[in-house]
């Protein structure tokens, strides 16, 4: 038996928004520790890794490990039926071929349940080694989304260049060239507005804009985003999810032949 209760179901709506542009379907692996998901986009250029710890839920029970293969378009249809303030309960029997989503209004006067068929998906995962990154940049997530959106007008690729002075995002194409430089913030009232850089070695890498733009669909999950970079390894774009855990996106760089 699997059962997870979430008082504010808006979190799951935001998670779904954050993954459905990159993934058509995904396996949600449920265990005592929580819910995890790892999946690559169709072209295998990027990878999504989601971790929602069990202690973040208002109630969580998972008697046996359960892998739920879910069509994300179907799940989106169901989650659209929930109000943002509804209380969500997800339930599945062991070895079930369906999962139930129940939405209760705050005053408990309206209760809806939706039964969704599960699908069989390949269960293969990639092993991601622990990496000490040369540069770790933290910045407001809204600022990162804005930069990705603005630069995608100028080219298909963004060059991210990090030194101890700051981080530079550049794009070039038919229109011309664009450069956006962010320095570390000296003083900020709110931690979430800060730009901070931890640098061991300067790094410059090139990435496809359209994936970065897809990652920014997670902006609503966290006021800050963390970019981790080392020479010739995938970029990691991480959004913390409150008391639950995180969503991480890995993106393979473009390299000069």
């Amino acid at each position: 038996m699997f059962e997870a209760r979430l008082v504010q179901c808006s979190m799951l709506k935001k998670v779904l928004e954050a993954i459905k542009e990159l993934l058509n379907e995904a396996t949600f692996d449920c265990s005592d520790a929580g819910i995890q998901l790892q999946a690559m986009d169709n072209s295998h250029v990027s990878l999504v890794s989601l971790n929602l710890r069990s202690d973040g839920f208002d109630k969580y029970r998972c008697d046996r490990n359960l892998s739920m293969g879910i069509n994300l378009a179907s799940m989106t249809k169901i989650m659209k039926c929930a109000g943002n303030d509804d209380v969500l309960t997800i339930k599945a029997q062991d070895n079930a071929d369906n999962v139930m989503f129940m939405f209760e209004s705050q005053n408990q006067e309206k209760v809806s349940d939706y039964d969704m068929k599960l699908i069989n998906l390949d269960q293969e995962h990639l092993g991601i080694p622990e990496t000490d990154y040369s540069c770790i940049i933290k910045m407001p997530s809204g600022e990162f989304a804005r930069i990705c959106r603005d630069l995608s007008q100028f080219g298909e690729s963004v060059v991210i260049s990090c030194t101890k002075e700051g981080v530079k995002f550049s794009a070039a194409g038919d229109v011309g060239a664009a450069n956006i430089k962010l320095a570390q913030t000296a003083n900020v009232d709110k931690e979430e507005e800060a730009v901070t850089i931890e640098m061991q070695e300067p790094v410059t890498l090139t990435f496809a804009c359209r994936y970065l733009n897809s990652f920014t669909k997670a902006t609503a999950l966290s006021p800050q985003v963390q970019l981790s970079m080392s020479a010739d390894v995938p970029l990691v774009v991480e959004y913390k999810i409150g008391d639950f855990g995180h969503i991480r996106y890995y993106l393979a760089p473009k390299i000069e032949e």
Partner: peptide
Amino acid sequence: NQTQRTMHNYFEWA
């Protein structure tokens, strides 16, 4: 000329 790498250039199946 730039080539787009994939996850498989960096990570192995677990």
